[in-house]
Simulated assay, not measured.
Amino acid sequence: MNNNFHIFPSENFIDLCLYQYGHEKCAPGHLFGPATRNHYLFHYVLSGTGTLMAADSKGENHSYQIRSGQGFMIFPGQITTYIADVNVPWEYVWVEFDGLRTTEILNVCDFSADSPVYRTRSAELREKMAKELLYISEHSDQSVFHLMGHLYLFLDLLAQSAPAPKPAVNSKMSDYYIKEAINFIEQNFQNDISIEDVAAVCGINRSYLGRIFRTSTGRSPQEFLISYRMTKAAELLKLTTLSVGDIGCAVGYENPLHFSRAFKNVYGISPREWRNLHK
């Protein structure tokens, strides 16, 4: 298996943020899952074929055969497994992203847990989109702003090439509260903060914050906090020689066992195993 994998070095983007990206030539029968993700993950198949098994909005499992020129979207918290064909394994490029504008973008493209497969009638737009994904995967040495620009270009082409794109919905006043909440989490994730603290900073109650946060981002404030902490932990594991215990403290976990458990829930392996894989 030939795997090109990168972690985006910055999370200081609220409306849209890139988390991880890569380019993979799978071995025959290569399998990933069952697993869940913290962010949205899009795969575009350059060649070959394979199978996606994904739970829909009701938790019922479905299988999709996905071949060259198609793609699939994985949603936060959605249980998925995907397997490369034994005879003609797929090669794909992928990006993991999230942000306040993500739900709006996916609505324009008409993606949902019930409709996760990307298909288009425009070969020209599809090829342009694939080039943007390949560009991102091959230029990890560029600045964060450069890569974010190409992420926006990719999403624009994804929306343009959708079979029946929907009009975008205007932003809501509640986005102000969500931005305030995210800013507070980003500045205080290393401290012992609760969602009540986040809501209090915004001047609203916890239940209202949870409702508008999930509507706009597809997940709860608690899920966002844990995801943010674990992404920061992954950066420290890869870029520093700090101990696992020290890294846990640096992202808000005084108990190393609690940190390791939370990390494994997100990445599927322990912090130590993750570090060994990504040195």
Rank of each mutant, 00 (worst) to 15 (best):
I212H: 07
S143E: 10
E180C: 05
N205K: 09
Y40I: 14
T102P: 01
E104T: 04
T80Q: 15
R229P: 07
I7R: 08
I269V: 15
G48Y: 06
P221S: 07
S68N: 11
D114T: 12
S161Q: 03
Y228T: 12
Q78C: 03
E138G: 09
V266A: 11
F97R: 08
Y152D: 12
D192P: 11
R229L: 04
N87W: 01
G50N: 00
R275W: 11
H146S: 05
N276D: 13
D114E: 11
L106R: 09
W94V: 06
S112Q: 03
A162R: 04
N107L: 11
L151E: 12
A200S: 01
S143Q: 06
K58W: 05
T120K: 14
V95P: 08
I247N: 11
L225W: 08
R67L: 04
N107P: 03
N12F: 13
P76W: 05
G48H: 03
L225R: 05
G22V: 04
Q78A: 07
A233S: 01
F184P: 07
S171H: 14
P221F: 15
I105A: 00
L236Y: 01
T51N: 01
S47M: 10
P76T: 07
G149V: 08
K58Q: 05
R121A: 07
T215A: 15
F189W: 11
L147R: 03
T240K: 05
G99V: 11
Q20H: 05
L277S: 00
C17Q: 12
S216N: 10
I193F: 14
H39I: 04
G48R: 05
R37P: 00
N255G: 12
Y19K: 01
T240I: 10
N107G: 10
L18R: 09
R206Q: 11
M129C: 08
F154W: 08
